[in-house]
Structure formats: C-alpha cells, structure tokens
Design a protein around this nucleic acid. Structure first.
Length: 900
RNA sequence: GGGAGCAUAGCUCAGCUGGUUUAGAGCAUCUGCCUUACAAGCAGAGGGUCCGCGGUUCGAACCCGUGUGCUCCCA
C-alpha cells in the first residue's frame, strides 16, 4: 500500500515531478513519422517579457488542443519560442544601461550595444520559458526558436533580398509615423489612437497683395484671416493656406498672399474642396512636413516642404524660432508669444484623436523620411483569397472576417525599416556615390558592385557601407510557421514537408493585422499554402470590472504567484472556464478558487475509492444490487464523451470543460459514487470496484488536456501502471483519430431510468426537507405506479438515497402519509412526524397550477387549425404527447388533493 | 464619420437550421445538515417583461425593421 493520501490535493508537490517525468520520457518531442501531424506554433512572446493573463489563456488553449491531439493518435508538435521585439527590447536595454551602468546608447558602438543586448536577453529572457513550463505546456523544447537565431536571421535576410529582387521592396521618402522617443519610424499598425482633450487655437495670419503690401488701411476684416489650429508649434512649417473654393467668405483671397506669423514667410493661398468650411474658421494652414493630409495637399499643389522638427521631437533650425526646444514646450512658448503679439484671438477646448507609439507611448509625429517599404497589394490579394476560399477558417468566423477583409482591401505599403540596432540589419550596401546594392552578404554586394563598375582603378579599395537600419519585428515574425521548421533556409527539408501547414493558430484578436494576416501573406508567397488551417481568436482578458489588464493599473495578476497559490491546474481551469471563443473574459481569482475546489473534489473522490481497495468482496452476492449504477454510468460516460468530442470540433473549449466538470462532480461524485458506496464498514463487490477504477481512469483521461497534473497523479494513484502507461500519451479509443467515427452505442433506456431515479430521489428529499423530517430519520416508502419492474431495478439505490427502510408497491393511497407526485407516480412517505396537510396541499396546488397553465398553452396550439395544417407531423405528435402527459399528471395530483 | 459585434437570473454566460415543456448552467443568495471522501463539503430552494417598440409566422429569446445602451476595429 502506498503512502496515505493527504487531506487535500497539494499541487506544488506533484506538478514539477510530473513535468520532469514527461520531459524525461520525451513525450513532447516530435519527429516526423507515419502518423498524421498536429502542429501548433506558439505565438512567440517578447523574449524579455513576462506572461500576462492573455498569454496564459492562449497557452492553455493551445496545450488543451495539443494534448487532446496527442491522446487521439496524432503526432503532436508544439513549437515554443520567443520574439526579439526590436523596439520594446531595445528601449528596455537602453533604459537598463542608462540606469544601472550609466551608459548612454550614443556612447556605444553598434557591436558593443548588441553585445550588451544579448547579455541582457540571456539574463532576463528565460522567464517566459519558465512560466510556460510551470503552466504545464507540452511544448517540444528541442525545437525552441528565437527570431534572432542564426538560421532565422538568415531567413529574414533571404526573404528581404528575394522580395527586393522581385520588385516588391523599395526605398523612398514618404510620410511615415515617427516615434520621437525611440527615434524610429513605425508602421501604421504600431500607432494607437486615443481620444484626448486638446485645444484649438485661433491665430491671425496677415493678408498681403502681390506687392507685399497689407490690403487694408487699418483694422478692416480683409487685413488678416483667422486660422484654427491644434498644433501652433508647426506654424513655422506652413507653406500655404487653403480654403474651400466655394467659400464666399474667402473669395477675396484670390491672388493674395499670406504672411506666416513668427517667421514672416510669404505663402500662397490655395483653393481645394478638401477643406471643410464648417470646421474652425474654414481656413486651413498647410504644413506638408507634419501632417499626412497636408502632405497630400502639398503633393497636389506642388508646395515646398519645411521640416521643422528634429528626430527627437525638438524644433529644428528650419523652425527658426525656439530651435532645440521640445515640441510641447515650444507650443506653450509660441502661444505666449502669439498672445503677446496680439495674434492669438481665442482658445477653444477641443476633443481630438492623437496617435501614440504602441511601444513607447510617445506622441507620434507624422514625418517625411526615407524608409524601406514593402508593396502590399499583391500579397494582400493572396491572403484575402486564402480566407475567402475557406483554406483558412477563422473562429469565431462572423466577427473577424469582415475586419480582416476590410484591412486587406485597404492596406497601404508597409514601412519595414526601423532606426534601431536590435534586429535584422537591412542587407543593403551603399557605395561612396550612394548607389545601392541589396544582397545577402557583403561579399555578394561587392560582387554586384564589380559587375556594374568593373575593378576599382588604382589602389583604391572599394568602400561599401551597410544600411544602418534594422527590419520591423513583424517582418521576421511573419515567417514564423515556416522558419521554425527551417522552411525558408532549407526549403523542402523533411520537417517543413511534414509539419507545414500547421493545424491551428491560437492568438489574440489584437494582432490580426500585425501578424495573422501577414503570416498568411508570407505563407502564400513562399509555400503557396496558407500556414494554418484554423485560426482561433481568444478574447481579451480583462479584470473583474471589465478594465483592460495593464501594468499601470496594476490589475494584472502575476502568473507564477497565481500558480503558487492555486496550482497550475486550478489556474488553467480558472482562465478557461469563462472564456468563450472570441469573447473578452473578465478574469477574477475566484475562478481559480473554483478550480482548486475541483481539484479537491477529485482528490477526495480518489480517497474514497482508495478506501475500497482493501475492502473488496469477491463473492457474487453484492454484484446484482449495484448493477444499475454501473450500467447507468457506463452509458452516461459514453453520452458525454460524444458531446465533448463535438465541442472540441467546434472549438468550444470552455463548454467542453464545463461538461466534463459537471460529469465528474454531479454524475460521478454526487450520484454514481453515492450509489455504489458500501454502507459503513461493508465491503464492495470486486466487479463494481474494478468498474469504478475504470470509470475514474476514463474521467481523468477526459479531463487531462485541461488539467494535466492532477489527472496524471490520480491516474497513477488509482492503480499501479506499467512503465510508460502515462495519461500524457494515453491513446483514447473513444476520441476520434482525425476522422469521424460512429457514435458509440448508447443504451437510452438506462439513461432514461437513471434520470427518473434522480428525479424521484430529488423530489423525495425535497419533501423530507419541506416537511422537516430530520436527515437521520428513517422513513417507510410506498409507491403507486404502472411501472413496477423499473422500481425493482432501482429500489436499493432509491432506499439508500432517501434514507428509507422499505419500498412497498401499493394500489391505493396510504393514509396519514406525505404524498409526493413524481410524473405519473405517487409516493407516500410514512414518518414519525405528524403530517402537515396544509403545507402539502399548498405544494400540490402550486404544481397543479403550473401544469394547468402549461396544458392550456398546449391545447391552444392543438386547437389552432392552422397549426395542424402547417406544422410538421413530429411536432404535432409531440404536442399531443405533451398534452396527454400533462393531463395524466393533473389527474394524479387532483386525486392526491382529494384525499387530503 | 465608416464598419462589426453585443444586450437572457444579482454576476459570468449557454440556448445549433423558429416548435422538448410559461427559458438553462456555473458562481453568488436563502434554508437545513460538522452523514466516517470532501464544510474548499452535502441535501434542497428561491430568483427572469429573454433591452423597448413594431413586423413576418399557425408558432419568436431565435428571423426582419426600428429605437436605446454598451464594446471593438478603421479614418
């Protein structure tokens, strides 16, 4: 006999042991074989980050799917890894170096900085892997990939060069989003818009005629016009004033010039219907260098561009005033100055949307800059087609297909260069004249140069300098499902051929454009096959009050601490139980509490069953009486398994978990175990014991994908298992093997009788309760029924469950008893306590009223000629049966009432 | 401003192609039990104008229209 079981389940003591065991056995490692593959690539978290609750949900969902597939005969492969996250990581490293070592990035060479960054990554980058282990994720650690691994780096460069050679990548000056804190360009997707309260400043601009003379004599209206702006600090970059050609108020401006305040630059008036006469004063200052709309206007009207900002957000020398002062500080100073000059007419509070950098939270500046871009039109078309044709299925479908399509149909070219060091450096080299050579290596670039220019004359060695910029992180992550299997660097290798396309992608809906759509693009471009068949979007994890979880609010629980408190299984349960696909979920510790209680329930059921191990009776006498419980549960188990299978197919994981939870707690613990439980110090039949161990094993197997640790532990506690007989790799017959399988034969009669037994027990217990019969008091029971054989089968169970000594069949009412009507059957409870007829009458009348109301509604339906004409035959038959049943029940109750 | 989604018990949600009951579950609440697996438990119970209005239909939580409120995405 093993050591006695602890009072409650202690997750800490078993979790690490089982995880180590699974690893030692190599259960999570996968190599191609003759089985069907089931592949998932983890959405690589930021290497320096920690897992938040959103990750926890995603990882748990993936583990459930992978474990389920592994138990269903698939060759399951889940690839872990992490992302170098260029902006976020570089920002952290810079901050670290400044704070801890007092070194600024400017002091360091590129190589030294990268050395520091890699050191930092080694030191802090392991936390997420540790967390993934603690959570119990069955990933193949031998396949761990980092987006800056050598082969991965090579793949990114290869793809860049390839797309460049295909003419899909180009370099040019465009208006981009600039992050003045990280001092880098951003893609459109990296800008988050927030509504904030700003101000609209009304500023006077002087009007002059062609000769530069003021038009009026004094304070006449035509001396100046008033322009409303939110950004007075960009006034120095104004190169035109624009009004609507249909705006009569400004018709007088034709042929006039405007003097820009502060810098006294003379600029033209342009007329364009773009301007909304109703907004502000109807006159717009045009600053092509610092606003995307102004930029487009500038292109159309051929305006010069005056860039008044430096890359750190301070005013440049081109601004002429307040040079070197930060943009927001400059705004204040400019307002003061304009006010002092009398040019500021008024200020107005104004709500506006401002772009913020997703990573640094700095206010983004639209800015013209020379960057690298990827043409998206072709790629987007293919990605659109992959979803439209059903090659990729999105779950939940309705909600995301429209967004996906809209984005792809309207996508602009992708700015892929970043002014950072941490990332894949753009493989472009420039010669002294600025000619460009794109190649995978410098040698190759030199070779290209020589092909064009011939050998350099004399002793001049050839000077080629590499582009300083790195690539957007997402330009590497979009290759993830391919390059984790070396699909780009070694195309056609056995792994990529076997594992690609992957089975499911599980991720948050917030990165549908950043990542999901782009992975589909890359997959279509390089494999001509989408990288996954299904995409499962999880919702956003919010706190109890529905707020986003964020560091600043401090409402995001620490995963390791949660696991410490509740155990990994309970945390997995807690996050999954209330996470319907695609819906946001409100996470609260209490759901982990529920998970912990469930652990305990399982544990206590184990303790109960273990007590029987030594108390088996091999003689046949006991078997018969307990047979119905076994028969019923066997069928109930089959029924629920098919239900769960169906829920898996539809990605309804939280429902599947609920179904299993209720099967174990209610059907198994509350009913089945109570039914087969021997009386105090009595033995249990060997057959029933063996069956029970079997059922329990099947239950923990069913639950294992959701709660791997406790189920593995119980599986082994139940019985000595052979080496290698572990739940993690148990093959379940009833789970399908990737094909549809006939539903197992279920004995409906047992299920019906079981349901009836439950109903009778509940009703009788209720009657005991309402009549205040003490739980310990033993009662005598009589039943008046048409179905005597059924009661023979269930009699022993019934007696035990309602604490009755006898069940007698009777043809007539039994006087001085409590009457309980269950369906068409009447029960009479004989107890010591005097019968309270008033209470009984009350109860029966209540039931009667309900039934009569119900009958009326059914009769109304059946009395409707059009219903009879139009409804399907089955529906009519059903209504007639409902009517008959109701009438019989009413009769039964009325009879009972008459006798009271 | 454009688009999408949601609204069912105190809370979180199920409710599939309209008909299985005048709507279900979990949590919370109330009542009674320390019954030798479990008080982190057991046995019961109560609780709903299915957001308002209109329509389609023999029949609507479900389909259509409209109003209101909330959420998300895009500009």
């Amino acid at each position: 006999m093993s050591t006695p079981l602890s009072k409650n389940f202690e997750p800490q003591s078993v979790e690490s042991i089982w995880y180590q065991h699974w690893m030692d056995k190599g259960y999570f490692n996968s190599t191609p074989d003759e089985r069907k593959p089931f592949t998932i690539v983890i959405p690589p978290p930021n290497v320096t980050g920690v897992l938040h609750m959103g990750h926890t949900l995603n990882e748990t969902v993936q583990d459930v799917l992978v474990r389920k597939a592994r138990m269903s005969g698939f060759n399951a492969c889940w690839v872990p890894g992490s992302d170098h996250a260029s902006i976020a990581t570089e920002a952290k490293v810079v901050q670290f170096l400044e704070k801890e070592k007092g070194i600024s990035k400017q002091q360091l060479s590129r190589d030294t900085f990268l050395k520091h960054a890699f050191e930092w990554k080694e030191k802090y980058g392991g936390i997420i892997y540790h967390q993934i282990k603690k959570l119990g994720c069955s990933v193949d650690w031998s396949r761990t990939t980092f987006t800056m691994d050598d082969h991965y780096y090579e793949a990114v460069i290869k793809v860049f060069v390839d797309l460049y050679n295909k003419g899909m990548i180009y370099r040019g000056a465009r208006m981009i989003n600039w992050d003045p804190q990280a001092k880098t360009a951003l893609s459109d997707e990296e800008v988050e818009y927030k509504t904030i309260q700003g101000k609209l400043y009304y500023v006077k601009y002087k009007v002059v005629d062609e000769s530069g003379q003021t038009t009026g004599e004094g304070n006449t209206d035509n001396d100046y016009i008033v322009i409303a702006t939110q950004r007075p600090e960009t006034i120095m970059g104004d190169t035109a004033i624009c009004v609507n050609p249909n705006d009569a108020r400004y018709a007088f401006l034709k042929g006039k010039k405007i003097i820009v305040p502060l810098v006294n630059r003379e600029v033209p008036v342009i007329f364009d219907e773009y301007v909304d006469p109703a907004f502000g004063t109807g006159a717009l200052k045009v600053t092509p260098a610092h606003d995307i709309n102004d930029y487009n206007l500038g292109l159309k009207h051929n305006l010069p561009i005056v860039d008044t900002l430096n890359d750190d957000g301070t005013l440049s020398t081109a601004a002429k005033v307040f040079v070197g002062i930060d943009r927001f500080e400059a705004r204040k100073k400019i307002i003061e100055k304009l006010a002092a000059e009398g040019s500021l007419i008024k200020e107005e509070v104004y709500e506006t949307r401002l772009g913020f950098s997703q990573r640094t939270n700095a206010v983004v500046e639209p800015r013209i800059s020379t960057q690298w871009f990827l043409k998206m039109k072709n790629l987007a078309g293919k990605a659109l087609e992959a979803v439209a044709s059903g090659e990729v299925k999105i779950h939940p479908e309705e909600r995301f297909i429209a967004t996906y399509k809209y984005w792809l149909e309207n996508v602009k070219d992708w700015c892929i260069s970043r002014q950072l060091w941490w990332g894949q450096r753009i493989p472009a080299w420039y010669d002294e004249k600025g000619n460009l050579f794109v190649a995978e290596t410098k040698e190759e670039a030199v070779h290209q140069w020589l092909m064009v220019n011939g050998q350099p004359g004399g002793n001049n060695s050839l000077q080629l300098t590499q582009d300083e910029d790195v690539l957007d992180t997402w330009f590497s992550s979009w290759l993830w499902p391919m390059e984790v299997f070396n699909g780009i660097t070694k195309p056609g290798n056995p792994d990529i051929n076997y594992y690609y396309p992957t089975s499911v992608l599980v991720t948050g809906q917030d990165i549908i454009f950043f990542w999901v759509a782009r992975m589909i693009m890359a997959g279509m471009e390089y494999k001509n096959v989408a990288p996954f068949k299904d995409v499962y979007f999880t919702g956003m994890v919010r706190d109890k009050q529905g707020r986003k979880m964020s560091k600043s609010l401090g409402n995001s629980p620490d995963l390791l601490e949660l696991i410490d408190r509740f155990g990994a299984d309970a945390v997995r349960f807690g996050i999954l139980i209330s996470a319907p696909a695609g819906n946001d979920l409100l996470f609260d510790d209490s759901s982990c509490d529920q998970g912990r209680s469930f652990n305990n329930k399982l544990w206590n059921a184990l303790k109960l069953v273990k007590m029987w191990e030594e108390r088996q009776d091999t003689s046949a006498s006991q078997i018969h009486t307990k047979n119905f419980a076994v028969q019923w549960f066997e069928n109930r188990l089959k029924e629920v398994k098919t239900q769960v299978e169906d829920q898996y197919q539809n990605f309804k994981l939280s429902e599947a978990l609920k179904t299993i939870y209720s099967l174990i707690w209610d059907d198994f613990c509350s009913w089945y175990l109570e039914w087969v439980k021997p009386a105090f110090e009595q033995n249990i039949s060997h057959e029933v014991y063996t069956k029970t161990i079997g059922f329990f094993s099947e239950l923990v197997a069913l639950l294992h994908p959701f709660m791997p640790f406790i189920t593995e532990e119980i599986y082994h506690q139940l019985k000595d298992r052979k080496d290698g007989d572990d739940l993690a790799v148990l093959q379940l017959e009833s789970f399908n093997k990737g094909q549809t399988q006939a539903t197992p034969s279920i004995d409906i009669d047992s299920l019906v009788l079981g349901a009836q037994l439950k109903e009778v027990i509940t009703s009788l217990r209720d009657a005991r309760n309402k009549n205040q019969i003490k739980p310990k008091e033993i009662i005598q029971l009589y039943v008046q029924t048409q179905n005597k054989t059924a009661y023979k089968t269930i009699e022993p169970l019934l007696l035990k469950q309602v604490n009755a000594a006898t069940l007698a069949i009777t043809e007539d009412a039994v006087p001085n008893t409590i009457t309980v009507v269950v369906g068409k059957d009447k029960f009479y409870i004989e107890a010591e306590k005097k019968v309270d007829t008033a209470a009984q009458r009350n109860q029966l009348e209540k039931d009667l009223e309900h039934l009569k109301g119900f009958l009326i509604s059914v009769e109304k339906k059946l009395g409707n000629e059009r219903f009879i004409q139009n409804a399907k035959a089955e529906v009519i038959a059903l209504e007639q049966k409902k009517k008959k049943d109701a009438e019989e029940k009413i009769k039964t109750i009325e009879e009972s009432l008459a006798l009271l």
